[in-house]
Amino acid sequence: MNIIQLLFWFLSVLAVFSALMMVTSKNPVYSVLWLIGTFFAISGHYILLNAQFLAIVNIIVYAGAIMVLFLFVIMLMNLNRETEPRKNRWLKMAGAVAGGCLLLVLVAALKETAGKEQFAMVNEGNIGLIRNLGKELFTTYVVPFEISSVLFLSAMVGAVVIGKKD
């Protein structure tokens, strides 16, 4: 087992474990922190796949901006204690069973699929570098890029309008 496989399994176990802890922990602040751990593990996967631009953007946008926003909202609402009331145990179990069934169905659907022997290129290849992606983004995808700026503007206006005290 070489170093790349070792890193791959380490990051995978870290991501899945952090996600499980995020779902199961009672305190919302701990949930946010575990989710940040998951995002860092996924960024490590991106670096392993040599998608360096996406790794950096994932850390800056998700772990940096979005999770700080979540943390601020939780602290503004003073939710950093275990306020979640006792809930029907059967409903919880039904949710877990339904999610497990989804997992089972997806794994079973992959069992007979073609192309399982394809390999993802790890630790080499230059399409994830910022030079390549920037060239592609500003030539082929320039119209969606501009439209996303309009989306951001509307999201900003919408957040201000919704959050305004009336």
């Binding site: 997806l106 390999f119 993802a120």
Partner: peptide
């Protein structure tokens, strides 16, 4: 790295999200 490994991990994360 076989791509099926990545698919399994993505499925696991997605299912954990659905359970949550």
């Amino acid at each position: 790295m076989p791509v099926i490994n990545y698919i399994y991990i993505a499925i696991a994360l997605f299912s954990i999200g659905v359970v949550g």
